[in-house]
Amino acid sequence: MDVAATRAPMRLVTGLAVALAILAGLAPVLPSYVVILMTEGLIYAIAAASLDLLLGFAGLPSLGHSAFFAVGAYTTAILVTRHQASFGAALAASVALAAIVSAAIALLVLRATGIYFMMITLAVALCAWGLAYRWVSLTGGDTGIVGIPRPRVPWVGLASGTLSFYYTVLALFVGCLALYLLLIWSPFGKTLVGIRDSESRMRVLGYNVFLHKAVALVIAGAFAGLAGSLYAYYNGFVGPSTVDLAHSMQFVLMVIVGGPGTLVGPLIGAFAITFLEKMVSVFTERWVMVLAAAYVVTALWAPRGMLGLLRAAR
């Protein structure tokens, strides 16, 4: 056991625990529309952090992450509205199906690297959008699937209120966060960073690089599926917009705005973009313009995100 190596992780855990305590403690005194936004922020944070495992840690710039998010969302929507599935069953099925789909996609996309990988993962997401849009009997097409009720949660009962649903999402978020932390600290997490830094060296050291990347894609896909499932409960409606280009890119933006490869950055990025959207929408109808500016500004001046800027300022 290396005591020195635990210092930074312990600081991180302390910081996160404080932030979570604030998120949990503040909710009852905040207006309910803020709590609703926080719920959305938490859901997107789960998805954005899972993309960070790929984009920031493993150096796999996947532009198709919304496809797995959508698999989770549609799975839940269909199971809940047509088969009256329980919360646990819908969550489990969404995670499992998203993992299976990402394993299949991994076999297709992992032979490409760099810019080709970006191009192909984006095409996968675009095709997923097309399927959601056209496969009407399964997805409801353009109208999507409506009327998804709030889940019935063990010990809580029907989480129909803003707060009870918020705490349900928060609890799952904490679980995901713990798993993310364990993952990035684990030997496997370190191998992903090694792959990001030098694939050829990893091979010569005896690593099956393809296998590690595929496992990372499956894990990230599973978490995105979980976020998608929660999103379906949160939104009550799932349609093709869940997986359209703007949505797919938004995950990438969240990761980069926060700071790729930091885990915490994407959490902040997810909250920032979610709140920005709602706040801007109050004042103007031109949210898309503001979002466009966010992309351009991030690309030109903050490619390492807010945490990157902080680090540079210090």
């Binding site: 984009l55 970006m118 933006l253 980069i256 466009a292 500016a293």
Partner: peptide, 23 residues
């Protein structure tokens, strides 16, 4: 301005695409 960085170039084209769409 961001030549050589795939992700930054992609983000830029996305921003421009959104801008053009809204315009």
């Amino acid at each position: 301005a961001v030549e050589g960085d795939d992700l930054r170039q992609m983000l830029l084209t996305m921003g421009i695409a959104l801008f053009v769409q809204d315009a």
